[in-house]
Amino acid sequence: MIQKNYLVITNVIKTKCVLMKKIWILFFLTFLFISCENSSQQVIKITAKTTAINPEIQQDSTYIKKFLPYKNKMIEEISTILSYAPKNLERNDGKLQSTLGNLIADLSYEKANELFQKETGKTVDFSMSNYGGIRSGIYKGNVTVSNAFELMPFDNTLVVVELTSEKVEELFEYFVAENKANPLSKHVQFIIDDGNYTIKINGKPLNNNRTYFVATSNYLQKGGDEMNFFVNPESLYESNFLIRNAIEEYFKNKDTLVASLDQRVIIKD
């Protein structure tokens, strides 16, 4: 027992000694470490080089393998057939209107009005978008998700602006001056007669005692295509809803895409 205790004690002493030694070494190493690490480091030289990621550089196939399943899924989804077009729809197949422009203007109106009514209880009077914003035609045959992307590659969203009648007049003056098929919805009847014009909105002449709610894109509202009459509206409703998604939704809900030239813009010679 005593023997054992003695052993234990010597062991303790031994351990203590080793421990002390260890602590000392640790302390010394820490000192070394600190003397090395704690003195702050100073930048003495800087070099720089930007490398262009050109086709000559090899591709790491593990990365391609990683994104390929996503790509395939995307291709599959993008080629999903949503509707059918019995004839070509283009942005330049009429005079100051077009089949495709009319389609886009009307579906933009429908979606903007739906969202606007839900939020405010009020009704949108008409819509106007831009000729330049239609980036592709729809051609006879199957209509896919890809068509919606080609038509509207930009992430523009639907907005509704409240305009004074003066601003609405400016809008129509712009329309005439630009002489382009900037899409107007079917709620407008615009008769151009040798430079003069008359406007009816929902069957009624322009009323100077009221304001109008006009649906358009956030791009045009910010002054895109110099549609400055949209820039400082009486009020602004931003739906945040992508026009592309509105197009896709419309395609999904229609078996066949039908659009024609109609009475919204009449040019009398």
Binding site: S39, S40, I44, K45, I46, T47, A48, T50, T51
Partner: peptide
């Protein structure tokens, strides 16, 4: 470096201990 991952930027910093330096001299090679 522009956009769309067309380029990779690189800047190299070389260090020395501070205590044998009097001023912050550094060489920048661009």
């Amino acid at each position: 470096v522009g956009a769309y991952g067309l380029n990779l930027g690189r800047v190299d910093f070389y260090f020395d201990e501070n205590n044998n330096k009097t001023t912050s001299e550094k060489t920048i090679i661009l």
